[in-house]
Every structure is written in C-alpha cells, then in structure tokens.
Amino acid sequence: MSKMQDNPDVLSVIDGYSDEVRAAILKLRTLIVETANSSDAVGTLEETLKWGQPSYLTIRPKSGTTVRIDRDTSDAGDYALYVNCQSSLVSEWRGLFPDMTFGGDRSVHFRLDTALPEDDVRQMILMALTYHANKNKRKTALS
C-alpha cells in the first residue's frame, strides 16, 4: 500500500527531464517512497513542487524535513537530492559518507555515469524524513 498520492504537476516536471536524468530522478523518487513505506516513523508522504522541484514531505507535523530532487545545474553532478540548509543533515551525511559530493549545507550530488549508492541514499532519506522527530528525541534524551 502506497503512503503517497502521485502529483500530476510533479510528474509533468519529471517528464520534462532528458531521458537519462528522468530515469535517475524516478529512481530517487522510488527510493523516497520505498523508504517512507518501510518506516512507521515516517508516515504518509505528500508529493508537491517546491521551487519547481519534485518535493516530498511528511504529513505528520514535526516529524521530518522536506526532501527535494532535481537535475543538477552546478558542476557537482548530474542530479541531486536537496534538504533544508538550516538542518544539520548534510553535516551529518558528510561524516557518514565522506566519499560523496555535497553542495554546501543543502545537497548531495550524483553522476549519471556512476551507480547510485542506494543503501546510503536510503539512510539519508530516512534521516531527512524523520529529522525533526529524531531531533526532538535527542533533546529529550539530553534533558
């Protein structure tokens, strides 16, 4: 059972990508949905557009932060996964996955000619989709 309803506006944006980028973005989208579906901590996802990018957020308040995916217009890669730059996620990911390519405090970048490290990306996605819930748990544990 899917925990997300397809958004036709998002699918239209994805359809506008080149064939290679579309396939990569659809793979990331699938990983996001599968990761959400595999964790009760995530709950239902909403698919929407933010800044013109396919975006995925939890419906449950204060549980996760938005995950965005898009082609990469920088020189860092061909497509990327983005999170809120005010979060500590990319900093945490740098420590966990030092061999990946990061863009500031908001993104991880991938190349079309390199296999996507699916297990690592699933972990990143889960961390993002449970970011606020886990942050609140860390604060409670420290109290």
Rank of each mutant, 00 (worst) to 15 (best):
S18D: 09
D19A: 15
A23H: 03
A24K: 12
K27V: 12
L28V: 08
R29Q: 00
T30Y: 08
L31W: 07
L31S: 06
I32C: 00
I32T: 03
V33R: 12
E34H: 00
E34N: 03
T35L: 01
S38H: 00
S39L: 04
S39Q: 07
S39T: 00
S39R: 09
D40H: 09
A41M: 00
A41Y: 01
G43S: 03
T44R: 12
L45Q: 01
L45M: 03
L45E: 06
E46C: 02
E47I: 04
G52D: 08
Q53Y: 10
Q53M: 15
P54A: 07
S55G: 12
Y56E: 03
T58C: 14
I59W: 04
I59E: 13
R60H: 11
R60E: 15
S63F: 13
G64V: 11
T66I: 15
T66A: 13
V67Y: 06
V67A: 07
R68F: 09
R71S: 14
D72I: 05
T73F: 13
Y79G: 10
Y79A: 10
A80L: 15
Y82G: 09
Y82M: 14
N84F: 08
C85Y: 00
C85A: 14
S88M: 06
V90M: 09
S91V: 05
S91I: 01
S91M: 03
G95C: 02
M100Y: 08
G104P: 00
D105W: 01
D105V: 01
S107P: 02
V108T: 04
H109K: 12
H109A: 06
F110Q: 08
L112W: 02
D113S: 12
D113C: 06
T114D: 13
T114I: 15
A115N: 07
P117N: 10
E118P: 11
D119L: 13
D120G: 12
R122F: 08
Q123E: 14
M124E: 01
M124S: 08
M124C: 12
L129C: 05
T130W: 02
Y131W: 14
Y131G: 10
Y131P: 12
A133Q: 14
N134Y: 07
N136L: 15
N136H: 14
R138L: 15
K139I: 15
A141G: 07
